[in-house]
Computed example of a mutant assay.
Amino acid sequence: MCSSKHMQMHHNHQRSSTAASAMGDWREEAINRGSLKHVDLNTGSNGWAAPPGDHFSVRGPNYPTKKGKTPAGEWLLDPAGVDWIRSNGRLDNLLARRDNRVMNALRASKKSSETFIVAVNLQIPGREHHSVVFYFSSKEGEPISSNPLLNNFVNGSDEYRDSRFKIVNKIVKGPRILKTAVGRYSACLLGKAVSCCYHRGADYLEIDVDIGSSTVASAILRLALGCVKAVTVDLGFLVEGQTEEELPEKLFGAVRICQMEMSSAMFVDVAAPTATSNKVFPVDSDEH
């Protein structure tokens, strides 16, 4: 009798696991097909991982009076993959392209009507343009509107977004000169420091960050790219809280970039694909 009960519990667990897996299939596909592979947080290289929110210090509930900071806690959104891509021109509004793999995976799923994507596209100028794109998706049962500050950011004006879009970062591994340079800007309003363009779709917001628009950001980036294979960096993205009602701050997403290699970037033509094209960038991760 105990054996029969155990078997029944095992089958129930299998069914619930299968159901949960089916619900998350589109996000698993988005993560696994990224041009930058998903790796172990502590031992991975040439890839990305999702660091816990508590790795970051953000404005706490008493910040207006005492300037106190607290660990950020759980992210508001879930990671949904990272793309490391190169192109023959600057890539803007990637999520509107017919070949964007994350939006294609989402819209092919049964979750498309209730899931929202926020993407941050860090655009790196040069002889060949590069972009590192971070995708984050709303959690099941937690629409964007459930967090008033994030909802205001997603649906607000570009001026509001510029005044609130913030990055917190930390060099986990890298040369001292880079840690010193980045440390001075460990928390920065990106919307004020560099030029940002915001693209709002029905189910997404993409933030295109032009690193080349700031001499300071460009100098730090050149320093980082010079030793990129030896650098591991944590990046946290959030909407800045400015009043007591908006605090403590919460990250909407966080990513660790682990000793990335420039040569691993996937090429994407700046010209958008035609309606008849079935190419989806990038290719399966097992082709790295």
Score class of each variant (00 low, 15 high):
residue 158 D to V: 00
residue 164 R to C: 09
residue 169 N to Y: 07
residue 160 Y to K: 03
residue 149 L to I: 15
residue 179 K to L: 07
residue 164 R to S: 12
residue 177 I to P: 02
residue 150 L to R: 03
residue 179 K to H: 07
residue 174 G to I: 07
residue 163 S to K: 03
residue 161 R to G: 05
residue 164 R to W: 04
residue 158 D to M: 05
residue 151 N to T: 08
residue 165 F to E: 15
residue 149 L to A: 14
residue 165 F to K: 01
residue 161 R to D: 10
residue 165 F to S: 06
residue 160 Y to R: 04
residue 179 K to M: 07
residue 182 V to A: 10
residue 183 G to T: 07
residue 176 R to T: 11
residue 165 F to R: 03
residue 157 S to L: 13
residue 166 K to H: 12
residue 154 V to S: 11
residue 152 N to P: 03
residue 160 Y to T: 08
residue 176 R to D: 14
residue 181 A to E: 01
residue 185 Y to H: 15
residue 184 R to H: 06
residue 160 Y to H: 11
residue 171 I to Y: 10
residue 153 F to C: 00
residue 176 R to Y: 09
residue 160 Y to P: 07
residue 185 Y to L: 13
residue 161 R to Y: 08
residue 180 T to E: 10
residue 164 R to P: 01
residue 159 E to D: 09
residue 165 F to V: 05
residue 186 S to F: 00
residue 158 D to I: 00
residue 183 G to L: 08
residue 156 G to E: 11
residue 184 R to K: 11
residue 163 S to L: 03
residue 171 I to A: 06
residue 155 N to P: 10
residue 181 A to V: 00
residue 167 I to K: 13
residue 166 K to C: 14
residue 179 K to C: 05
residue 162 D to W: 01
residue 153 F to K: 00
residue 163 S to Q: 10
residue 167 I to V: 14
residue 155 N to K: 13
residue 166 K to G: 06
residue 172 V to F: 02
residue 158 D to S: 03
residue 177 I to C: 04
residue 158 D to T: 04
residue 154 V to G: 09
residue 155 N to D: 13
residue 158 D to C: 01
residue 183 G to D: 04
residue 152 N to L: 12
residue 153 F to I: 00
residue 150 L to D: 04
residue 148 P to E: 05
residue 164 R to M: 10
residue 151 N to R: 02
residue 151 N to D: 13
residue 149 L to H: 06
residue 153 F to V: 01
residue 149 L to Q: 14
residue 157 S to T: 15
residue 172 V to D: 02
residue 166 K to S: 15
residue 182 V to Y: 12
residue 164 R to G: 09
residue 174 G to S: 08
residue 186 S to P: 02
residue 170 K to C: 11
residue 168 V to P: 06
residue 159 E to K: 02
residue 163 S to N: 11
residue 167 I to Y: 07
residue 162 D to C: 01
residue 161 R to F: 09
residue 159 E to A: 06
residue 153 F to D: 01
residue 150 L to H: 11
residue 157 S to N: 10
residue 182 V to E: 05
residue 173 K to D: 09
residue 179 K to S: 12
residue 180 T to R: 06
residue 181 A to Y: 00
residue 171 I to C: 01
residue 183 G to E: 11
residue 170 K to I: 10
residue 170 K to R: 14
residue 179 K to F: 02
residue 170 K to H: 15
residue 160 Y to Q: 13
residue 153 F to S: 02
residue 183 G to M: 06
residue 163 S to M: 03
residue 179 K to R: 12
residue 165 F to I: 12
residue 166 K to F: 09
residue 173 K to Q: 13
residue 158 D to Q: 03
residue 170 K to P: 05
residue 162 D to M: 01
residue 169 N to T: 15
residue 158 D to L: 05
residue 183 G to C: 04
residue 149 L to D: 14
residue 157 S to Q: 12
residue 156 G to L: 12
residue 186 S to C: 04
residue 167 I to C: 14
residue 162 D to Y: 00
residue 151 N to I: 12
residue 148 P to R: 07
residue 155 N to I: 10
residue 164 R to I: 10
residue 172 V to I: 15
residue 170 K to A: 15
residue 182 V to W: 08
residue 186 S to A: 12
residue 179 K to G: 06
residue 163 S to P: 03
residue 167 I to N: 13
